[in-house]
Design a protein around this nucleic acid. Structure first.
Length: 567
RNA sequence: CGGAGUGUAGCGCAGUCUGGUAGCGCACCUGGUUUGGGACCAGGGGGUCGAAGGUUCGAGUCCUUUCACUCCGACCA
């Protein structure tokens, strides 16, 4: 394409609402245009990149037997009522009515639609397995859209769903999707990590996230320095801690501890490691239909509570903080709460690390008193993994040191099982002629988010640095002085020549000064450029690398070979 | 939803405190000079000052209401 024929409105100044590199450069480079909170138009360049990413996703999925479909963006509310998500999904679900007062939903994800599609068309085990996907718009009325394409309300997502006769076959497909996703992100030139994840609102058992490593990422992930282990902080586990300092020894007793409330104060007062103190965190758990209760989460004083894990442990929709008034109304004393002699049958959940714990100190649920010599046989609770893994903890796989890093979630795959097929009565006849629900998996990729992720990982202070397969063009030709007939004609000649060879070329034929065009080239971020300039008279052009390598001069006769080499 | 902030030309901003002819830079149009790192000169076009109401002889500026957007916290591809 010729620059003069393309709409590429590059911006010299930073739009004031953009803070993140990807947001700034995508706007400045003329890839996208903001139209409202979390809503963007894709301009010609942005659309080309989006299609590149989309095509890679499609190619890889088709290659392993998945089939593309396209589901309606507007979905009847009845589907959502049937699955129970009409209420549960909350305000993110954009609902509206048509002229006849029928209720509809803009699809935020398409489990219901896809299950319905398959339910109507697949009746026999002979038609399985089946993996269907689409690459389509989604709309989620996010509480707080931000960071440009990173978290829009309307976004492009690839969502895939697989249907199987049993768990084993679903797990086989799940593993296949993991491998396929790795190929997709590798082709896009991304440095990423596959991590264990929490399943969240979608539900299901095993789930894995694909994280693009970038400091601006919104997720904290735990990785092992010595092995492949990686997990979202929400799902990360560790090797049980071993403490060197001795456990205190005391018979079970109530101990006067006036004004000694925090773990630190207790640790000082009793001269024991926080490891031997029980920390009790009170949270209010919210359930469906407005029900809620106070729950006490108990863990070792050396640990901190991971809220997502805690939320899952009690099957709540959400955990919120409890005010001091609510606590005292419930008969609880901040600083003196504990799992023993709990008032009013308040629910208590303890961390796995407290199973069989002895010689612990914990709040006595009485003001100014703690118990000493407490052991887990004194308490009747359920045990769950509740702790947030800390940097420096030991890897559960190999014992290596765990550290934190930041990631952008670009893919998430789930083993759903019969979570949707059963309530929606999506069933088939198995080989024994018996009715059984489909065993499902579901697989998502944030396609438009990938554009942001690529730039987050590949940019400098001048602009974008698109990776080979994502770049809108393979190479750019810059005419140094477009009014110089000799330069223009020559640039034109190699432009057409490369183009006929199937190379995607952008010719900057604008009548602007050299510096102006170089700045735009760097901002847009195509991997290579050929500068046709003054040296042309000596039979030379210049090859510029966007990745920072020094440019080199090449002879005219070598241009095509060099270019073919590069791409 | 809680906290903070911003709405003035396509973009970035000043003007608002202290009411008195709506400005600057970039971009855009015309002509000319320039042409290897976002050129220069001259001329020009473009605004219901987010919206509604009020105070006033007079409101971008003061008052009330409202809308939108952005940033910091709980959700997610």
């Amino acid at each position: 394409m010729k620059f003069t024929q393309l709409l590429i409105p590059t911006l010299k100044e930073v739009p004031n609402d953009a803070t993140l590199a990807s947001h700034i450069y995508l706007l400045r480079g003329g890839f996208i245009q903001g139209v409202g909170s979390g809503l963007y138009n894709f301009l010609p360049l942005g659309k080309i990149v989006l299609d590149n990413v989309r095509n890679i996703v499609k190619e890889e999925l088709d290659a392993v037997g998945a089939q593309e479909v396209s589901l309606g963006f507007v979905t009847p509310a009845s589907f959502w009522i049937d699955s129970g998500r009409f209420e549960k999904y909350g305000k993110e679900l954009l609902r509206f009515k048509d002229r006849k007062d029928n209720e509809f939903v803009l699809g935020p994800t398409h489990e219901e639609m896809m299950v319905n599609l398959v339910k109507q068309t697949v009746k026999s085990y002979k038609q399985l397995p089946l993996n269907l996907y689409q690459i389509n718009l989604k709309f989620r009325d996010e509480i707080r859209p931000r960071f440009g394409l990173m978290r829009g309300r309307e976004f492009l997502m690839k969502d895939g769903y697989s249907f199987h006769v049993n768990e084993d076959d679903m797990k086989r497909e799940f593993a296949l999707m993991e491998e396929t996703y790795k190929r997709i992100f590798t082709r896009l030139g991304l440095e990423f990590r596959v991590v264990d994840a929490d399943s969240g609102a979608i539900g299901g058992s095993g789930s894995k996230e694909f994280m693009v490593l970038a400091n601006s990422g919104e997720d904290t992930i735990v990785v092992c320095k010595d092995c492949e282990y990686g997990a979202n902080i929400e799902a990360a586990t560790r090797k049980p801690m071993i403490i060197e300092s001795e456990a205190p020894e005391a018979d079970f007793a109530k101990f006067h501890t006036p004004n000694i409330k925090s773990i630190d104060e207790l640790s000082d007062f009793f001269k024991v490691d926080p490891f031997y103190i029980m920390k009790t965190v009170a949270m209010r758990a919210l359930y469906d239909e407005g029900r809620s209760e106070i729950v006490l989460f108990v863990l070792r004083g050396s640990d901190t509570l991971q809220e997502t894990k805690a939320c899952n442990a009690v099957n709540a929709n959400e955990l919120i903080e409890v005010s001091e008034e609510e606590l005292s109304k419930a008969g609880l004393y901040p600083g003196y709460m504990g799992p023993i002699e709990v008032p009013n049958n308040i629910r208590v959940v303890a961390d796995d690390a407290l199973q069989n714990a002895v010689q612990m100190i914990c709040g006595a649920n009485a003001e100014n008193y703690h118990f000493v010599g407490a052991s887990s046989d004194k308490i009747s609770v359920t045990y769950h993994d509740l702790i947030a893994v800390q940097e420096g903890d030991k890897c559960i796989c190999c014992g290596g040191e765990l550290t934190y890093t930041k990631g952008i979630e670009v893919g998430h795959i789930f083993q759903l099982g019969i979570r949707y097929s059963e309530p929606l009565k999506a069933e088939f006849l198995n080989e024994h002629g018996k009715t059984q629900p489909f065993v499902m998996g579901t697989y998502g990729i944030g396609v438009s988010r990938l554009l942001a992720a690529i730039i987050e990982q590949h940019h400098d202070d001048k602009g974008c640095k698109w990776t080979k397969e994502s770049s809108p063009f393979d190479i750019e030709i810059i005419v140094s002085n477009a009014k110089d007939e000799f330069q223009s004609q020559f640039a034109d000649k190699i432009y057409y020549s490369l183009k006929t060879q199937g190379i995607k070329v952008l010719l900057d034929d604008r009548k602007e000064r050299f510096g102006f065009k170089m700045k735009d080239y760097e901002l847009i971020g195509i991997p290579f450029a050929i500068v046709v300039g003054q040296k042309l008279e000596n039979g030379m052009v210049e090859l510029v690398y966007r990745d920072g390598r020094p440019s080199v001069e090449i002879a005219l006769k070598d241009i095509e070979n060099v270019v073919r080499e590069l791409i």
